[in-house]
Design a binder for these strands. Sequence first.
DNA 1: GAGGTAAGTTAACAGTGTTATCAAAAATAC
DNA 2: GTATTTTTGATAACACTGTTAACTTACCTC
Lengths: 200, 200
Amino acid sequence: MGVLERKIRQKEELRTAILDAAWQLVLTDGWQSLSIRKIADAIEYSIPVIYNHFENKDAILLEFTREGFLKLAAHLMTAKDGANTPAEQLERIADAYWDFAYANKEYYQLMFGLGIPACETVNQIPEMQEMTRILTSTIKAALAAGNNPEADYFLKFHTYWSILHGLVSIQMIEKDGKPDDIKKMILHDAMSGFIKSLMG
Amino acid sequence: MGVLERKIRQKEELRTAILDAAWQLVLTDGWQSLSIRKIADAIEYSIPVIYNHFENKDAILLEFTREGFLKLAAHLMTAKDGANTPAEQLERIADAYWDFAYANKEYYQLMFGLGIPACETVNQIPEMQEMTRILTSTIKAALAAGNNPEADYFLKFHTYWSILHGLVSIQMIEKDGKPDDIKKMILHDAMSGFIKSLMG
DNA sequence: GAGGTAAGTTAACAGTGTTATCAAAAATAC
DNA sequence: GTATTTTTGATAACACTGTTAACTTACCTC
């Protein structure tokens, strides 16, 4: 009596159908536009069926988040295996991290909670330029005062800002509150390294 | 006949009342929970009144985004003024940037589109540990092979990851597509600086 | 006071996530 | 083969969301 096996197989098929449909919808319209109703429509079932396979919408998103981290880890691992020295491995991993994020934007946005507003609105905020102006002018002055005056200030500005934002947002994600002084240590460590390489 | 003046003053008051009420709601319940209806309820007006002052909900958020960037710029400026050499200014600015982000989490989250899911769910994703394991082991190996074997690998791991994530997410926000090779240059620049300071 | 303008309200539309209720189908028991 | 139970799925609703059309009311101008 393989009837029970068939049932759990069918159930599994429906589950993956839900995930496939959801993924397809995300690829075309993005996370913000994903809805239970659209998924139900795509798989040609009624809405409550989805709740037989996932507790709620967040559970579906969590599934993709998990998937994303697994894919990323695999990607980084093969990159690491392509090099021998640790230093070279770190560079390869960095490249792989970058490639993954851009080849799988949808995953990355979900994994790190990158909301929508930014990409569409933040660009047209003139108030932001006041901040970038302060940063670039300081970077320029530092370059002029250091031993790498020929370096690209715009590139260095981006590096500086990215380090800052990365530190902040990564630590905002991790709520397992490390003490503030340790967080600041990480900041100062990153900054001293950057400034050293900046000034030459 | 100051009647017209009174009218535009009242209109202005209502506008700020909307923003004040919205901000209060955000402080207590976060951005995700903010709704037009709650704002209308708080200011004791009907819903459409809000649309007389803001085109839509995004316009309200945009207002706060602008405000946030202005506050950040001012904060960074005073930090910069507190130091003389460019190198020291860059450090002070980094500190100020950090302080602002944590003293004004709501602003920062809005400004950079940091969604909610992360802080509540990402933490409990065991799949993430596979990735961190790869990174930390490589960092450890690099430290062992370099001239700073006594350095804190966990701190360095965090720095490494933050740089990567910062570069990715900042450049995802800026949709004015710089060519990919320039983006990669920024990445390599940041990485070479980090690795140099890592290996000593 | 009559006419016109602006302010503010009610009510609705089109969505969203989620769930209680119920019908039908399928598997089991007799 | 029929009856019973269990599972599967659908309908319909609830409580929200952003947004807007239509209407009333108050106010200012003439």
